[in-house]
């Protein structure tokens, strides 16, 4: 594995240099928020960030995506498949938790029987550069409870770790190695590596927020009807903030939009928190209240995903904890479930 050292102030320059030839998504400061956005000439990448407000899943699974187009003919509408064009893209500076989310999303979108071409094409064309958390960004971070680590190569092609004086760049995959030319020529020595290991250990210990994510699985298996479920949702506004901010939430809606002779079929984010999510044409709704919807959200992340893919669909980024307008805290919910 190729390893190099780069100067700390070189990072912005590298991202900008890449942006001249490739599409580079990087954290950019926009007013009060840090958002992942494609770099343009006048957008300055901002790597001194804690974590981005939005999850970088939108690079592979955008809020709205055209699945196909169609046009009217005398005999009715005929469609033309939307070309799956995704140029070479670099996702620069994602946190390890978010990179972990890509591994989880792969399990769903890239299954043996049904392959989601839209997601896969973009995923294959994108090189993920992780900026490891030498210091955990937030007190709400709980990645270590859900199989993550603050310094981790999970889901990454290149990992950058702040080892104090410099960044250590590790090229994990061949895809990552292809971009090595942007990272200078200074080879990393064993000292840098030891330092990185120390930092990784320290960072791991610094994550104080813990949830019994694995312990709740057997409890969830048997407590679908438990009265506990009626106690979480009271103050829930039924907005979709938690799911829209979540790096692993992937539910979507498919709808058609037509105007005069042209139209498109789009898919857009949907949320299990919305009452209409499961409402059938007949009016019947299997998830009739926010109680059932919350149960679904918790179950999907901590039981169903484990059943189907043997992985917890939560990366511990804490976005839902911080963004929830009424402070419904998934950490507390999991904690409470573990005591049932």
């Amino acid at each position: 594995m190729e390893k190099r050292l780069i100067k700390k102030d070189a990072l912005v320059g590298i991202a900008k240099k890449m942006a001249e030839e490739l599409t580079v998504w990087a954290p950019v400061k926009k007013e009060d928020n840090v958002l992942f956005t494609p770099l343009t000439k006048d957008a300055e990448p901002f790597f001194a960030y804690l974590n981005s407000k939005n999850a970088p899943k939108q690079v592979f699974f955008p809020h709205t995506e055209t699945l196909m187009k169609y046009t009217r003919t005398p005999k009715g509408m005929v469609f033309s498949a939307e070309e799956n064009k995704a140029g070479k893209t670099v996702l620069f500076g994602v946190r390890p938790c978010d990179a972990h989310s890509f591994v989880l999303l792969d399990m769903l979108f890239d299954q043996e029987k049904y392959k989601d071409q839209y997601y896969i094409t973009k995923r294959n064309n994108t090189t993920v550069i992780t900026l490891a958390c030498a210091e955990p960004p937030y007190a709400t971070c709980f990645c270590t409870s859900v199989d993550g680590e603050p310094v981790s190569a999970d889901g990454a092609d290149i990992v950058l770790t702040d080892i104090g004086s410099e960044y250590l760049a590790e090229f994990i995959t061949p895809k990552g190695e292809k971009l090595a030319k942007y990272f200078g020529e200074t080879k990393a020595d064993a000292v840098a590596e030891t330092k990185k290991k120390e930092i990784a250990e320290k960072a791991k210990k610094a994550i104080k927020s813990k949830i019994p994510a694995h312990e709740v699985k057997p409890i969830l298996d048997n407590n679908f009807e438990h009265p506990f479920w009626a106690t979480i949702h009271g103050k829930c506004l039924a907005c979709g903030t938690c799911t829209y901010m979540c790096p692993t939430c992937h539910c979507f809606d498919i709808s058609d939009e037509a105007k005069a002779s042209d139209g498109v079929r789009i898919r857009s984010w949907d949320s299990c928190m919305f009452p209409l999510f499961t409402k059938e044409t007949s009016g019947h709704n299997p998830r009739i209240s926010q109680k059932e919807r919350w149960r679904q959200r918790v179950m999907h992340k901590f039981k169903y995903y484990v059943d189907n893919f043997n992985a917890i669909a939560c990366v511990g980024c804490g976005r839902c904890v911080m963004s929830c307008p009424v402070n419904i805290d998934i950490r507390k919910i999991i904690e409470d479930i573990s005591k049932l």
């Binding site: 898919r267 949907d270 044409t281």
Partner: peptide, 13 residues
């Protein structure tokens, strides 16, 4: 019967 969109186990409803 259930409400469906994608039909291939991805859209999650």
């Amino acid at each position: 019967e259930m409400r469906m969109k994608c039909g291939i186990g991805k859209c999650g409803r």
